[in-house]
Computed example of a mutant assay.
Amino acid sequence: MQGTVDGFSYGLVTPVVAYLMACLGGALGLRCTTRSMLVTQSWRPGWLALGSAAIGSGIWTMHFIAMMGFTVEEAPIHYDRPTTYASLGVAVVMVGIGIFIVGYKGARGAALFTGGTITGLGVASMHYLGMAGMRLDGRLQYNTLTVAASVVIAMAAATAALWAAGQVRGFAWSVGASLVMGLAVSGMHYTGMAALSVHLHGTADPAAGESPAALLAPMMIGPLAFLCLAGVVVLFDPLMIMGKPVPRADPKPGVPAHPPLTSTPRRRPGRPANVHAHRTPQNR
């Protein structure tokens, strides 16, 4: 029996909130990536790790907020807890690999392509692993071409977002990059959901897993709290906001920016400093 799938049970509420969460995670993560390019090598891994966790948490939170609005009218849906946790780990690890490549090699050329591809694949892997954690009295089936399109969307948009983050041109660039990152996650998610069809065996309550209200709502507290903490770090770091070190103020008119590099020659006691300059032709 073909199940009736509804991905918008709450109208536009879940898609809009999910997109905003993806943008928030992307903004914090990409900002940390930009910040890592402005610090010494010893601090760089910490900023990149924080960025990876922020983007991964944003991706995971976006997905399951969107899934709160997903229903199959003829059958209840449960979620497997270990698989759901594993999807969060996959998102953080794969996104982290892509971000570390860009953070150390730069947002250009082969490094950008490789980092963006791995980050996009991390978004897609998180989505389909999260979908694999669904439990219902039936099976899920995907259209291959639509799935491929969703993966391409994720890789292309993630590459564009990492490129924008690597420009280190200030806060406006980071906002644009976060919007693109949110588009990558949301676009991939809903394209992947469009590829889904559900074939039901019956309408019984699944024996395994937990209901969305019992599992997803408490599980989202942790990632949301982490995103808030990362947001505090961003707000209290001026370089995170400006995107680059603030240049020193221009010197006052008539005052040189740096002292002259020439030195005054030492003179003997009792002898004028400019004795040679005051000698007349008659005295030479």
Rank of each mutant, 00 (worst) to 15 (best):
L50H: 06
V232D: 07
D137A: 15
S57R: 00
V152G: 07
S87V: 10
L162G: 02
T4M: 10
R44Q: 14
V232Q: 01
Y10W: 10
G202K: 06
G209N: 06
H276P: 03
S52R: 07
T191D: 06
P272E: 10
V233D: 09
T83W: 13
L183A: 15
A154Y: 08
S87L: 13
P82T: 01
R169M: 08
V232H: 04
M37W: 09
A124W: 15
V151F: 11
T84S: 10
S178F: 12
A22P: 02
R139Q: 04
N143W: 11
T84G: 03
L121S: 09
M67A: 06
Y142C: 01
A132L: 14
F113Y: 09
G56L: 10
H127M: 11
T33A: 07
V175H: 02
Q282N: 04
N143G: 09
P76G: 03
T119L: 15
V13C: 06
P245H: 15
P259S: 13
V255E: 14
F100A: 04
L112R: 00
Y142D: 01
A75E: 07
A154H: 06
L38P: 01
P259D: 14
G222D: 04
G130T: 07
L50D: 01
A107K: 03
H78P: 00
S150M: 09
A132K: 02
T83P: 01
M67R: 00
G96Q: 10
A164D: 00
P272W: 10
W43F: 12
T4G: 04
R279Y: 08
V90H: 00
V185K: 01
G56R: 01
M220S: 09
S57K: 00
L145P: 08
M68S: 11
A124E: 07
Q41S: 14
S87T: 04
F113D: 01
H201P: 00
A194E: 13
S87W: 08
A86L: 14
M94V: 05
Y128D: 03
V90R: 02
R108S: 13
A230L: 09
V232T: 05
V39N: 04
V123Y: 12
V151Y: 10
A154I: 08
L20K: 04
T144L: 15
G98Q: 04
G46F: 13
I153K: 04
L162P: 00
V93A: 13
Q282P: 00
N143T: 05
W43P: 00
T119Y: 13
R169E: 14
S9I: 05
C228T: 11
G182N: 06
W47L: 15
P256C: 08
P245N: 05
A157L: 15
P260K: 03
I55E: 04
A158M: 07
V102T: 04
A207V: 10
L216W: 11
Y190K: 02
L229M: 12
R284T: 08
G122A: 11
L12D: 06
D237T: 15
S174N: 15
P245Y: 11
S42D: 12
W173V: 12
F171R: 04
A225L: 14
R169Y: 06
G176L: 15
G11A: 12
A49W: 13
